[in-house]
């Protein structure tokens, strides 16, 4: 059962990370195309700035969070912990997970209510034209939920193996 859940969480996070990768490639192509149109046709792709700022960057950053948590790729300082006995290391790791649950839990909760509110109001950004931005808000709760699930999975594994990840 544990392994099954672990697998589901892993694949969910790989899925959102794959979406983030796709967005990264799209962003590269979109900007490249914009520069090309400007140099060769003295034109522009309307909305490049808005798409990059409100959609690509947001999706790219937040959808990748769960995968980073799952793979324990967070930047942290290992030095002192490594000098501790294994049991202390496990305790510190569990502490990190609990703090992580609290932090991402708060971020998830607030960003979810922001996304709901933005959706209800049909939030827009004013630019040279009117630009809907409420869908982009949803990348945050999705990303934070992924991080929460990943931390839970890692916590479960660490406790089962009685070893810090």
């Amino acid at each position: 059962m544990m392994r099954f859940l672990d697998g589901i969480i892993r694949w969910l996070n790989i899925g959102t990370a794959a979406a983030a990768g796709l967005v990264m490639v799209l962003m590269m192509l979109h900007i490249t195309l914009d520069v090309g149109v400007r140099y060769f046709f003295n034109g522009q792709i309307v909305g490049t700035l808005e798409w990059v700022s409100f959609y690509y960057m947001v999706a790219l950053v937040f959808l990748g969070l769960g995968h980073v948590e799952m793979k324990n790729e967070n930047i942290r300082v290992d030095l002192f912990a490594q000098m501790m006995p294994a049991r202390v290391q496990l305790a510190l790791y569990i502490l990190a997970c609990v703090l992580g649950l609290a932090f991402f839990g708060m971020l998830f909760w607030q960003s979810l209510s922001d996304a709901l509110r933005a959706t209800r109001r049909g939030e827009e950004a004013m630019s040279n034209f009117r630009f809907l931005i409420w869908p982009a808000r949803w990348a945050l709760p999705i990303g934070f939920a992924g991080a929460l699930l990943a931390i839970l999975a890692n916590l479960g594994r660490a406790i089962l193996r009685r070893q810090a990840l």
Partner: peptide, 13 residues
């Protein structure tokens, strides 16, 4: 940070 809490998490919390 010194006890291996991820840096972003430590600062944010």
């Amino acid at each position: 940070i010194a006890i291996r809490i991820p840096i972003g998490l430590a600062l944010g919390l």
